[in-house]
Amino acid sequence: MFMVLPTLALLHGFLGFSRRGPIECFRGVEHALRRVHIIPLIPEVPPSGTIVERAEALAQQLFSSNAPAFALVAHSMGGLDARHLIAYLDPDRRIKSLLTVATPHRGTPVATWVLESRGVIPAWVRHIGNPGLSELTPEARSAAPIPDRSDVVYSSYAGHRPLDEQPFWLRYFGRAIPAANDGMVPVESAQWGEFRGILRTDHIELLGWSLGLPNRRAIRPFDHLDFWTRAAVDAMAAAEGKPS
């Protein structure tokens, strides 16, 4: 029997983008995937939009193609967009798997801290980040749960760097989380579906933007190209119903 391979889509997070000129949010990942014969879609959704707005934009871009099946791999808020799309915007059930990476499924105290704090940096983040930022607090996520769909395979990774390994600017946010975190998202909040483990990386380093000095002891920089390639292969295998 002829099997149609699922189409892979990489989904960016809060304040993310697909490409700005030569700059890719997922740095070098598209090229790395093409080397293993995976041609990904990298949709762009409103960077600071609500989950509903972002999910609707995502659905429009994915389902305008004639691809019969999709495997989604999402960074950060992209995982919440994907879960909303799967639950409410996929009547033909074309989404088969979702792998989330550092997604704040249960929210993040960083969002609460930014919304409530004084100072130039929190004010600037509020200015560019709302209304989406308001949906990333633990309280908001608890008040608006997104149901899973039984025919979709859900899995997840979390990132974690101790505070002293985080870049100094990221530590500014990481201190707002009283638990293990990647500078933006608590490890516990990132766990959804089959939890595949904790990656020694910070939230931005996951995308290939290592803003700390190289450090062999801390395994910095994180090998993001290897990770996203493996994640893509695993997500596609899950979409086909194969063990990964």
Rank of each mutant, 00 (worst) to 15 (best):
A231D: 02
F63I: 09
N66R: 12
W209G: 08
R175Y: 14
V185T: 09
H105N: 03
A55R: 04
L58R: 00
E240I: 03
T108I: 01
A140Y: 05
D226Q: 12
A143S: 15
G16S: 08
T7A: 09
H37L: 13
I219H: 15
A218T: 07
V233E: 09
P46L: 13
R171C: 11
H203G: 05
L5G: 04
F14N: 07
G129H: 07
V4T: 13
V52S: 14
R217S: 15
E44T: 02
L213V: 12
V73Q: 01
R216S: 15
A190Q: 04
V4H: 06
A238N: 02
I23T: 10
P147Q: 13
A158P: 07
P109S: 08
H84R: 05
S156D: 09
M184N: 11
E30Y: 09
P122W: 07
P131Y: 08
D92G: 14
I51K: 08
N66W: 04
A59C: 06
G241F: 06
A179M: 09
G107N: 01
V153A: 03
A69L: 04
V187F: 06
I146E: 13
T137K: 03
A57K: 03
I219M: 15
T108H: 02
R54P: 03
S150V: 15
A111L: 04
V187M: 09
D148I: 12
A82D: 00
L85I: 10
L213F: 12
R149W: 08
P109Y: 08
L11V: 12
I51T: 14
L211Q: 13
G129V: 06
L41C: 02
I219W: 14
T50E: 14
G13I: 02
A71P: 08
K96Q: 10
L206R: 06
A140S: 14
P46W: 12
A71H: 08
V152E: 04
D151W: 11
R19H: 13
A179G: 08
A57I: 04
L211K: 09
D90P: 09
T112F: 12
D92V: 10
T229L: 00
N130F: 01
T100Y: 10
W169N: 08
E139C: 09
T201A: 14
L206K: 07
G208I: 00
I39C: 11
S76Y: 04
L206I: 13
G119L: 11
F222R: 00
L8Q: 05
T201L: 05
W113C: 09
F2P: 10
G28I: 02
M184R: 11
S244Y: 06
G241S: 11
D81F: 01
L163D: 12
E188S: 13
L11N: 01
E44V: 01
I177M: 03
H203W: 07
G208R: 01
V52E: 15
N181G: 11
L207K: 05
G129E: 05
S76M: 02
P221M: 02
E205M: 04
F17A: 03
D151Q: 10
L10C: 08
L85Y: 02
V4W: 00
I128Q: 12
P91L: 13
W192P: 02
Q61M: 08
P6M: 00
R220F: 00
G159T: 06
R54A: 11
S76E: 01
H105C: 04
M77Q: 05
